[in-house]
């Protein structure tokens, strides 16, 4: 199962990011998220959303083997991560995040908290 986004539905409310940070870090801080929402109003006509589809390219490029695959989800072992940011650069969706307060990147762990909170059903699960 992976999370996908239907761009045409997104209203840009960022509740997904807010709940993501609340779940991962117990903080009201939508910058600490693994979901990207941005405006393309004058090109595409609305918001665009990017989410992790657990493709594993981050793990492929990690030089220390800090990104582990288990049950379809890639997670960062922060004890092994050297914050080289190769994974951030390699992520094809641009959803591995660097936050100035954190030593290691933020990565989606498919907790699905965002799915339950999105008011416009932009996010859904597919096989």
């Amino acid at each position: 199962m992976k999370i996908v986004a239907d761009n045409s539905r997104c209203s840009g409310c960022k509740l997904c990011q807010l709940t993501c940070a609340l779940t991962l870090f117990n903080e009201n801080n939508p910058k600490k998220t693994a979901i990207k929402v941005w405006s393309e109003h004058f090109t595409e006509g609305g918001y665009r959303v990017a989410v992790c589809d657990q493709c594993g390219e981050c793990a492929d490029v990690c030089p220390t083997g800090a990104i582990l695959h288990e049950d379809g989800v890639y997670r960062i072992d922060t004890s092994k991560c050297t914050n080289c940011l190769l994974c951030v650069r390699a992520c094809p969706s641009g959803v591995m995040y660097v936050h100035r307060q954190l030593r290691t990147p933020i990565k989606c762990v498919s907790c699905e908290a965002c799915l339950g909170i999105c008011p416009t059903h932009t996010l859904s699960l597919v096989e």
Binding site: S8, S11, G12, C13, K14, L15, L18, H41, F42, G45, G46, Y47, P119, T120
Partner: peptide, 25 residues
């Protein structure tokens, strides 16, 4: 064109629109 919300709002009362004859959004 699309619906547009303020921060954290499920209602999303904003509507983004286009008037082609005037070339504006």
């Amino acid at each position: 064109l699309s619906t547009k919300a303020c921060f954290g709002c499920p209602m999303a009362c904003g509507k983004f629109t286009e008037v082609k004859e005037r070339g504006i959004r």
